[in-house]
């Protein structure tokens, strides 16, 4: 019986593909999908071949490979997966029609045959959904890693002075990364002074304040002093309201003030040589 159904599908291949193409012309979802309208014939064909191959072999391997590959490709190039879903739907409709046309006089047989194809196409849908979610999760993970890489630069400013500008929201994961980066930066540069600029951190809550304290304490254990600069009024209020003791931590209102203090600690002196203002004749950058 199974054999017979598979043979029926194999025989009516041309008919079904033809129907699919007719259905897909002017389809609202397929129309704007880049790359799908042009080679839809190829898509229907390869999907049908994969399904037939799997039916004959009794596996899912070919369908899985094809649909999974399509979903991954769509996600990678930022395309919608809806057209792929639509293609499977159209295949379902046209095969249903083909079965009805063939066995008009026997509704029982029609429902059996369509039930058979439905099983395969449902499986294809599930594969599509699964692959899409998996591909999206991969993309998200990659982006997260990129973001972390970008987000915590430790800059050596002068001999023994580091600057750590913090920008964006700090969560536990990032706080951990910041601490690791800063500590290894301190050891690498053998720096005794670190300026932590938090003016770019939009929300400062207990969690962030706690991480900040821990980072400062760990840096102190290594033998480096931290100056926290750029504390905005809201942050100051949060700190006071929450009753967090910033007691021993050195803070300054601006990066400039912090830098001045750091230079003083290192016995540097910052002063102008010659006349005031940048030299107009050689450009402002000199």
């Amino acid at each position: 019986m199974e054999q017979e159904i598979v043979e029926f599908w194999a025989d009516s291949r041309d008919e079904i593909i033809g129907k699919c193409i007719k259905l897909s012309v002017n389809d609202a979802i397929l129309e704007p999908g880049e790359g799908y309208q042009g080679n839809r014939e190829l898509l229907f064909d390869s999907l049908w071949n994969a399904l037939l191959g799997d039916m004959q072999a009794g596996t899912w391997a070919k369908t899985e490979e094809l649909v999974g590959g399509l979903a991954r490709e769509a996600i990678r190039y930022g395309r919608d997966v809806e057209p792929i879903q639509r293609i499977i739907e159209i295949l379902m409709e046209s095969s249903h029609e083909a079965a009805k046309a063939q066995y008009q006089e026997d509704p029982g047989k029609v429902s059996m045959i369509t039930g058979h194809i439905r099983e395969y196409l449902d499986k294809a849908m599930i594969i599509l959904a699964k692959s899409t979610i998996k591909a999206q999760a991969e993309v998200i993970k990659k982006q997260k890693d990129y973001l972390l890489e970008l987000s915590t630069p430790v800059m050596p400013l002068l001999d023994g002075i580091l600057v750590l500008p913090l920008i964006g929201t700090i969560d536990t994961r990032r706080a951990r990364q910041i601490m690791d980066n800063l500590l290894s930066g301190i050891v690498e540069a053998q720096a005794d002074t670190v300026l932590i600029d938090i003016s770019g951190v939009p929300i400062v809550d207990t969690q962030v304040a706690h991480h900040l304290m821990k980072t400062v304490q760990a840096a102190r254990l290594l033998g480096a002093r931290c100056i926290i600069v750029g504390i905005r009024p809201e942050f100051a209020q949060t700190i006071v309201k929450l009753g967090i003791d910033f007691g021993t931590i050195v803070t300054k209102n601006s990066l400039q003030a912090g830098l001045k203090l750091a230079l003083k600690w290192h016995n540097y002196e910052l002063r102008r040589v010659g006349g005031g203002g940048p030299d107009a004749s050689t450009g402002t950058n000199s």
């Binding site: 690791d180 500590l183 050891v187 760990a218 840096a219 102190r220 254990l221």
Partner: peptide, 17 residues
């Protein structure tokens, strides 16, 4: 002198600063 980052992090996590 010369405490390593790993040790410093451990101490801070233990609440011993």
């Amino acid at each position: 002198a010369g405490m390593s980052p790993a040790v410093a992090i451990t101490l801070v996590e233990m609440g011993l600063s």
